[in-house]
Design a binder for these strands. Structure first.
Lengths: 179, 179
DNA sequence: GGCACATGGTCAACCATGTTGTCGATTCTA
DNA sequence: TAGAATCGACAACATGGTTGACCATGTGCC
């Protein structure tokens, strides 16, 4: 889609004057989020490239997050919304999407006539299982490239610095653009 | 926005059976992308919380990416689109929003009547300069919490494992949802 | 000089994903 | 039992993407 990387690096518009030997000397501060996002996107892109070749070409990153929010025991749209950090209406639309793709089903809850329980189809479970396996493989690749201890330390460092509630919130899609 | 964290952790739908002592023993593979994204989001959220208190409450993460793509010397909508990895039409819409927010301006290029050069306003430069300074501060906080060497190693590790072209591509918004 | 082609900007239609607000139905609870 | 809370749905709208079409302009080449 993009066929070049511009020669004038777009990330050097603002130089804070501290140069290479800034506060820590190991990189300017703005690189940190880009590296983290780059790592995340690298993993997610490779996951979905693999999934696409394994019978799940229509699965998007957001669908994976949504299926995780559905969970093994199923959930209502409202619950899914809370887990993803979005409104129940938005969650309902996402569920519609999963239904259309064949990854989830909706059924009345016999115990509560208001609720409609969303649960994964076998195809949905299969996609999640494949995702887990592929993530393990990708992590092993990182361990081979970096050393297992460095990957462990990277994870440990991030766990220290990412608030626990933030670490596993799954609202990946929304927060970027919305007001 | 979200008022709880569900007790049943939503990320354990699929357990690959390897348990705690999986391929590397330091964490299941699916945690890695979540931690990376969590770190990224933590930084970006805190950046924009700070920016909001400093006169830029309407600035969104995507606007920051877009302003980086505009660059110090200005750019056309087509160039911005290439840098962000989106179509020129999408870039044009983004530029419209930057104009409306007062962060950029559009001017005819005297040397080429087709082109309309987008450049940052003083307010746009100021926002980028503040962002750079805040990122430096946030990185310093991580260094204080983790140790400067661990932050450096984290950056070095990610640089090793993230393709160079990927590291500084700025198309944050699009890839998540689009087909 | 002139023509073919590439490039830049814009318009229109559409999609996916969010947001509020409202509403009826149902369940919980004081 | 009456009022409050919850669930799902619908509608209207914003945002940020996509294609496709179109016109104006610049460029390269015969």
């Amino acid at each position: 889609m993009v066929d070049h990387v511009p020669e004038e690096n777009v990330n050097q518009v603002v130089d804070n004057g501290k140069g290479e030997s800034g506060p820590e000397g190991g990189g300017r501060g703005y690189e940190l989020p880009l590296l983290l996002f780059g790592g995340f996107r690298t993993l997610i892109d490779r996951l979905h490239a693999r999934l696409a070749t394994e019978g799940h070409p229509d699965l998007r990153p957001s669908h994976g997050f949504a299926m995780q929010a559905v969970g093994a025991r199923g959930a209502t749209a409202s619950e899914i919304g809370r887990r993803l950090g979005v409104s129940k209406q938005a969650a309902g639309k996402t569920v519609d999407r999963l239904l259309a793709l064949g990854y989830a089903e909706r059924a009345d809850d016999p115990a509560d006539a208001r609720r409609k329980l969303v649960h994964l189809t076998p195809r949905g479970y299969e996609a999640l299982a494949r995702s887990a396996a592929i993530f393990d493989e990708l992590r092993a690749e990182w361990a081979a490239a970096l050393g297992a201890d460095r990957v462990r330390d990277l994870e440990a460092a991030l766990r220290n610095v990412v608030p626990a509630e933030t670490a596993f919130r799954l609202d990946a899609t929304s927060w970027l653009g919305a007001p």
